[in-house]
Amino acid sequence: MSRQLPLFPLGTILFPGMTINLHIFEERYRSMIATCIEQRMPFGIVLIRAGDEVEEGRLGAAPAEPHLVGTTAEISANVRLEDGRFLLTAVGRERFTIRQITQRHPYLVASVQVLEEDVAPGVTKAAEELRAMYLRYWKAVEVATGVPVEPDELPSDPATMAYQLADRLQVPLARKQHWLEAPLLARLYEMASDLRAELALMPGSQDGAGQGFAGLGSLN
């Protein structure tokens, strides 16, 4: 079932279950957030596909065109400053796909449909493989650096685990957007494959040549 959702195009991605801190300063988004707070309704965060994140006060700024898949954001805390700006924290809730843009001014509103997580056979096995690769990766980091590592314990739920890792892994935004859009089974296998590729770059790795160490940055 479709519903109307105000959109906030950004140069970042919010995954379900993750939090984001926002500084709302453009007048149009102040109005949007004020309405969301008053009506206790979520808004949608979508990665910008083309255009500019900030238009107000910028000559020649192009309107933001969003990717079609984003995440609903529920405001969990907010402070309204004296000049009308907002500082807020929001939590990602559900993935959605844009069916139609129904309003463009002063801010985007779209008819969206929530995307349910698939329950395809093999999800549990794929999650176990990703968990094992995650632990192997950090063990290899410990060996390569000589520094003890205690990786965070991953959630038991496959979807929650995938979103948490997708949020933390330092990969290009295009890759993160692909994971947001992909079915859960594909997401789990692809993330395990990416970790395996990074593992192969580590010195002394048995998964590949081990020439150099690109790393994924901190997952903690």
Rank of each mutant, 00 (worst) to 15 (best):
E74A: 12
S218I: 07
L195M: 12
T102D: 13
R196V: 00
A132E: 13
E190A: 08
F8Q: 09
E198N: 03
L10A: 09
S156H: 11
G217W: 00
Y107E: 06
M133V: 05
A182D: 04
W138F: 14
E27F: 07
D52I: 07
L216F: 05
E129Q: 13
E181R: 12
L7S: 00
R168I: 10
I45P: 00
T35W: 15
E53M: 12
A186Q: 13
A110L: 05
T97E: 11
M18H: 02
S218A: 14
P203N: 09
V109K: 08
L201Y: 00
G60A: 03
G44W: 01
S76T: 12
P9K: 09
R196Y: 10
D157A: 07
P148E: 09
L88G: 00
E26V: 06
P9I: 10
V119K: 15
G92N: 05
E74C: 13
L59R: 14
L5M: 10
T97W: 09
A174F: 10
M202V: 11
H105V: 09
D167M: 13
L199M: 05
L81C: 09
Y107T: 03
E128H: 08
F96H: 06
P148F: 06
E65V: 14
R40Q: 15
V143Q: 14
P203W: 09
L47K: 03
L154A: 06
G70E: 06
L188R: 07
A174M: 13
G70K: 03
E55T: 14
V69W: 07
S31P: 12
L22D: 04
A50V: 03
G212D: 04
M1N: 07
M202C: 12
R93E: 08
F213A: 14
H105T: 11
L185N: 08
A186K: 14
G70F: 04
G215V: 02
R49Y: 12
T124E: 13
E190R: 13
E94K: 10
M133K: 04
M32D: 01
Q103R: 14
A192E: 11
I45D: 00
L180V: 02
G212K: 06
H23C: 03
V123H: 04
A182L: 04
S205K: 03
T72D: 05
I37L: 11
F96P: 03
D194T: 14
N78S: 15
L81I: 08
A197H: 00
G11R: 07
D83M: 08
L47V: 01
L87A: 07
H23I: 01
